[in-house]
Design a protein around this nucleic acid. Sequence first.
DNA 1: GTGGTCTAGACCACA
DNA 2: GTGGTCTAGACCACA
Lengths: 131, 131, 131, 131
Amino acid sequence: MIFIDVRDRRPIYEQLVERFSDLMIRDVLKTDSPMPSVRTLAAELSITPNTVQRAYAELERQGYIYSIKGKGSFVADTKPLLKKSRSRIMSELSELSGRAYRSGISEEEFVNAAGSCYRAHTAAEGGTRND
Amino acid sequence: MIFIDVRDRRPIYEQLVERFSDLMIRDVLKTDSPMPSVRTLAAELSITPNTVQRAYAELERQGYIYSIKGKGSFVADTKPLLKKSRSRIMSELSELSGRAYRSGISEEEFVNAAGSCYRAHTAAEGGTRND
Amino acid sequence: MIFIDVRDRRPIYEQLVERFSDLMIRDVLKTDSPMPSVRTLAAELSITPNTVQRAYAELERQGYIYSIKGKGSFVADTKPLLKKSRSRIMSELSELSGRAYRSGISEEEFVNAAGSCYRAHTAAEGGTRND
Amino acid sequence: MIFIDVRDRRPIYEQLVERFSDLMIRDVLKTDSPMPSVRTLAAELSITPNTVQRAYAELERQGYIYSIKGKGSFVADTKPLLKKSRSRIMSELSELSGRAYRSGISEEEFVNAAGSCYRAHTAAEGGTRND
DNA sequence: GTGGTCTAGACCACA
DNA sequence: GTGGTCTAGACCACA
């Protein structure tokens, strides 16, 4: 379910954070369901528990999971997170479009770029997701 | 040519920076043409020379104008600036579209939002530009 | 005895939870005395029984009331609840004062703020309580 | 200047974050001045560079320092941070005082507790600071 | 068993 | 030189 992309130049822990948060947002991992234990996942991916731990710590900091000492880590309710994330994206898009306008980028150019940038991500992560 | 929007909650010097850089990017103000002197502009806009000075300092820092002691300020060549600005906008748009994708925003929704955000800026600043 | 503040922007069920828990903590509502039935209270306040139900469910979850099927809801013993709540408040106050100290807030400023914040709540809720 | 308290049960990296942010807020460490390098500080404190790195990462995340790869870490401008921190503390104090009021804690009790909690922190960290 | 911290050391990219 | 990531392993508190 979770794979590490060796060609990806980003650190492993960052990849893990993205993969997991993705699965939660798409509701593949349901609220309150248990995450694999740090050691289990480390063994499965053949990486050190430290790196998994780091990813989990970041996921917890961002509100995607909650950890209970001695019990394990669990998927948090990501709905409020999603809402906040969306509204933030929209406000950044607004700021960005203003700068685009002032840099002489036309509406057509801007909208087209938005579309092709978006599709680039679908392609890039689509493959990984189907594994 | 330059107007201050009293309803705009941003500081005046920031408005001036935006208005001037705008005129340069749209090539209304040509490279090497002289900027109005600090005192002249301050008198015209009925604001303190200090505020104009601050705007000019910021424009110089950003590379939009250059100053020659005893002669005044002049419009810089903004083409390289523009190129850098555009490529930065595109890379931010790419990063943003990835986050949109991962937040469950569809391509259609993202592209539509890009368009309407852009048009919001055209409407808001359109009046100033035609002067 | 129970009023809804239409100007209060919080959801009605949350207001109900606060009003009731308040009355229990101040011992206006005694342990084991019956709560008004869901339908009665809903009619009295001209709100839907659903909202009252939600407030009661929350009060039960927090330990303020207990429900007996077919008989109704009753006020729980709130003394242990109170003790826990107080000790939690004190530990949060301790944590907060540490952060205040480290943010350069003086003892005088902190203590004064504590007092005026407290009085703000007395004023705001004073009216409701006397009814 | 920086010491680790072995009796402190909190993790070392957390102590480091607190000590450093403290020094910045009290303006002992000035904006843009260089932080000791990760390796230097690790050697000085006889701990592993990893732990220092972790503390620096947290300080950067919180906005206290900024790091430039290959150049080092530097003290950030903490003034806006301070302002935000203070306003947050005040709003939490307000929320807390409301809960105190509703838990039957009197104004006098609350204000006194605020004072003695505050003084506890002065005492606890006063000694460390003078070293 | 679980998460969380730390050690001692390696290697990378960047300047 | 600098910060940043990772390994392989130890130990702790908590359940």
